[in-house]
Amino acid sequence: MLQLEAYLGQSEVLRLVEENLGAGVWRCDPAGQMQWSRGFFGLLGLDPHVIVPSFAEIQRRIHPDDRRSSRDPSEMMTDRSPLDGEFRIIRPNGALRWLHSRTEVLLDSAGEPECILGVALDITAQRRLLQTVRIDAERYSALAQVADGLLWIGSSDGRITALPNGEKRPEAQRLFGKAWVDLLHEEEREAALSSWAASVETARPYSVEHRLRQPDDTYRWHRCTAVPVTNGDGSIREWMGISVDVHHEKLSVQHATTSRLTGAQLRAARGILNWSVKQLAARTGISAAIIRRLEEYNDAPLMPHGAMEILHRVFSDAGVEFLFPLVGKPGVRPR
């Protein structure tokens, strides 16, 4: 740098720094007289041919919510806080900018304060980026709280490294690392690990259903899904997943294979598809008269097993799912 200074004047260096970094420099002597660089005028959006540099002018441009206590400029020789730190300024055209300011007291040969030298940087872009990151973080936190399941972050080798919403679920701590593998039911363990290995190799989403051992040594069905989080070069940094308890849903589906349709379910299923009785009869081969008679029952009417299978299949192919919860009334929904 000492060699470089021999070739560059101070004004050239100052201009280069201010223009390329969005910076400005100011100086204030003990009497309160200030001098501003061209860059500092630019930061405040002021015309150097019109405005006389002063501490009061700077204070006038600082956002009201960011102003510190007003004082005599000479006091800044011992307390520089009014112009140290980050604050917003409002330019004459109404534009709002964020500045980061630092000051230093320079001493004369006798060790007495000679002046204050300050430098300010325009950090508006960084502040906006930080605001975006903060909003995203708050949204992520909110989603973690309302997620209908246990969120987890894992590495490619299958280790769970974090549980974003697990602080209120003490039992979830037993899943950390690879401990979750030992909690899988032995009948689903091999398939789950095989699916995980395939997802890691292909970078495709992971999705399995398995039984997980509970603290009381019982097992409950869970649906576990995960997607890779990648780096800029496309490599996988980590996996983000969620494990949802689907025990009642799983048992309901299993129960449905042996449950009989109710008249109320048939009416609701037709309503979802906007089918008439004649249209259902045409699709199933069951007479319209029989269908009307079946729909008169709110409970499960007597019907041949073959007819029930046909109704199940036709509605299922059309996108309707019948529900038979262990608790509550049978239902129906679009699939």
Rank of each mutant, 00 (worst) to 15 (best):
E5A: 10
A6V: 05
R15Y: 03
A23M: 11
A23E: 08
G24W: 00
G24K: 01
W26L: 13
C28F: 03
D29F: 06
A31T: 10
A31N: 10
A31K: 09
G32I: 07
F41W: 14
G45L: 10
A56F: 10
E57T: 15
R61W: 08
P64R: 02
D66Q: 05
S70A: 15
R71T: 15
D72W: 09
T78F: 06
S81V: 08
S81E: 14
D84P: 01
E86I: 08
F87Y: 14
R88V: 01
R88H: 04
I89S: 01
R91Y: 08
R91F: 04
R91N: 08
L96N: 03
L99N: 00
L99Y: 02
H100G: 03
S101H: 00
R102P: 00
T103S: 11
E104Y: 06
V105K: 01
L106E: 12
S109C: 10
S109N: 08
E112I: 04
C115G: 01
L121A: 07
D122G: 04
R127M: 10
R128I: 14
R128Y: 10
L130P: 02
V133M: 12
I135V: 09
I135H: 10
D136L: 12
E138I: 08
E138M: 10
R139E: 10
Y140T: 12
S141I: 02
L143W: 07
V146G: 01
G149R: 02
L150K: 00
L151S: 06
I153L: 11
G154A: 14
G154N: 04
S156P: 03
D157Y: 08
I160S: 00
P164G: 04
K168G: 12
R169V: 11
A172Q: 05
Q173D: 13
F176T: 07
G177I: 08
K178Q: 13
A179C: 11
D182T: 05
E187M: 04
R189A: 12
A192H: 13
A192M: 11
L193W: 05
S195Q: 14
A197P: 01
A197D: 11
S199N: 04
V200N: 00
V200Y: 02
P205Y: 07
S207Q: 12
V208F: 06
H210F: 12
R211T: 02
R213L: 10
Q214F: 05
P215L: 06
D216T: 08
D217A: 14
W221S: 02
V227A: 10
V229M: 14
N231K: 13
G232S: 14
G232I: 09
D233P: 01
S235F: 05
S235T: 15
R237D: 12
R237T: 05
W239S: 01
H247N: 15
E249P: 01
K250P: 03
S252T: 05
Q254E: 15
T257P: 03
T258M: 13
S259N: 12
A269N: 06
I272L: 15
I272H: 14
W275Y: 11
K278C: 04
Q279S: 14
L280I: 07
R283G: 05
T284D: 12
G285M: 11
I290G: 00
R292K: 11
E295Y: 06
E296T: 10
E296I: 04
D299Q: 09
L302I: 09
H305R: 14
E309T: 12
E309A: 15
I310P: 00
H312P: 00
R313C: 11
V314T: 13
F315Q: 02
S316L: 09
D317N: 14
V320C: 06
L323Y: 01
F324R: 00
L326M: 14
R333P: 02
